[in-house]
Simulated scan of single mutants.
Amino acid sequence: MTTQDRLQQAIHLRETGRAEEARALLLELVASAPDDAQVNYQAAWVHDNLGLEREAIPFYVRAIEKGLADADLEGALLGLGSTYRALGEYAKAIETFKRGIKEFPHNRAFSVFLAIALYNTQQYSESVELLLTHLAQTTVDENLVRYKRALLFYAPQLDQTWE
């Protein structure tokens, strides 16, 4: 069985709720193909699914360094940033989310997770600005749509008052 076949088997195991079996197989695959970006990405993913965030980090980092592209890179950056944030490594989370925003500007999840990390570092104005901006730009709630212009106006100047 090839590495690709075994990788597909591990993905299938993870997707069907057999994450521990997937993890064991992925650890074997990482040992035999340590520079394979996809193997490392899937290993990171399964560790995150199992609540093993700290163990997931090196796999995410290696997967990104070894050349993940497109949707996989997008997922890995979001996963890595979220994992850093969950572990209280806020500066690394912010840096990772900002990279994600730069490389995948269409994916608003990066900005929303960045807002959470900014909140965690007491950068409240920037956090709320991001959230208000994305809310105003994406909501279909007619009560909020009515105030879209006001929300976008106030978002970057939350501490300002007018007399």
Rank of each mutant, 00 (worst) to 15 (best):
S111G: 15
A33I: 02
Y41S: 08
L68M: 07
F59R: 11
F104K: 04
G51K: 08
G67V: 04
E28C: 01
D36T: 04
E53F: 10
D72Q: 15
Y90T: 14
Y41K: 04
A37N: 07
R108D: 10
N40T: 02
A44H: 02
Q123W: 00
R18A: 11
L68A: 09
D36W: 01
E28D: 15
A31M: 10
F110M: 06
E15P: 03
N107E: 14
L77F: 07
S111Y: 06
A33E: 15
A24I: 13
R14T: 01
A63P: 07
V112A: 07
H12G: 12
L52A: 13
S125L: 11
I57E: 01
F104W: 06
I116V: 15
S125M: 04
H106A: 15
K92E: 15
L13A: 05
L29Q: 03
T83Q: 11
R85F: 03
Y84I: 09
A22T: 09
E89T: 07
R108A: 13
A86P: 01
S82M: 11
I94N: 00
G17C: 13
E55S: 13
K102S: 08
T121N: 01
L118M: 08
T16R: 12
E15C: 07
V112T: 10
F97V: 10
I64S: 06
E74P: 04
K98W: 00
E126M: 04
R85I: 05
G81Q: 06
G79P: 07
S127P: 08
L27W: 00
R54F: 05
L114K: 02
I94Y: 01
E89W: 11
S127Q: 07
N107Q: 11
L26K: 05
H47T: 01
I94M: 10
A86E: 14
E55A: 15
L73H: 06
G75P: 09
Q38M: 15
G67P: 13
A117G: 03
Y84P: 09
K66W: 02
Y84T: 02
F104T: 02
A93F: 05
T121S: 06
D48P: 00
A43T: 14
E28A: 08
A69W: 02
A115P: 12
V112K: 09
E74A: 05
L25P: 07
E89C: 04
L25A: 06
E74R: 15
Y119T: 07
R62G: 00
Y41A: 12
I64F: 06
R108I: 12
V61M: 05
E20W: 06
Q122L: 10
Y41C: 03
H12R: 12
L29I: 08
R99T: 14
L114Y: 00
A76P: 13
A93Y: 02
A44C: 08
L114H: 01
A91K: 12
E89D: 14
I101V: 15
P58N: 05
R54K: 15
S111C: 08
